[in-house]
Amino acid sequence: MSILHDFAQLLYDSDFGTALRESQYAFPVVEGAHLLGLAFSVGLLAFADLRLAGVLLRDEPVLHVLGQLRPFILGGFAITFATGVMLFWAMSIKLLPNPIFPVKLIFILLAGVNFLWFEFGVARGAAEWSDCPVPPVRARVAGWTSLVLWSAVVISGRLIPYLG
């Protein structure tokens, strides 16, 4: 706890953290990019998830939909993650005691585990069912799980100012 706190204090007091926190324009711009990056990351991922769940784009092969969206989803996550790190850097001491912040991180972790399970487990046999309008249960579960977990990440993120 104290190591974490010391680290947060170090970030908070650093030149970069202080400058970003006190900047009239840079801070809102980073906040804005964090939100708008969601359109590419969580938003486009939702389309991939809904294809896996057999809800949308049923006529298109699953692997094609995932492949086409992948670079944009990854780019979106790069923006969301980088701006998220910057926001933590600037606000670390205020975020640490916020009860919803660790909850958000846990949801991100769970979504990551779900992704790894899909990528290295479920997707292995995807060539067999890629053309199916409705993929097998395991794939649908992975899709819905991702959709629910990332929604929970967004919701807990929006809760941060309410519980801070």
Partner: peptide, 30 residues
Amino acid sequence: AAFQFAHVLGFVLLLASVTLISLRLLGLAF
């Protein structure tokens, strides 16, 4: 806060839809 959740999730879906359509029209995907 609950209205805010619906507002943010709805808006993310909206922006993602606009993005998806634009990627196709711009010839960047699908």
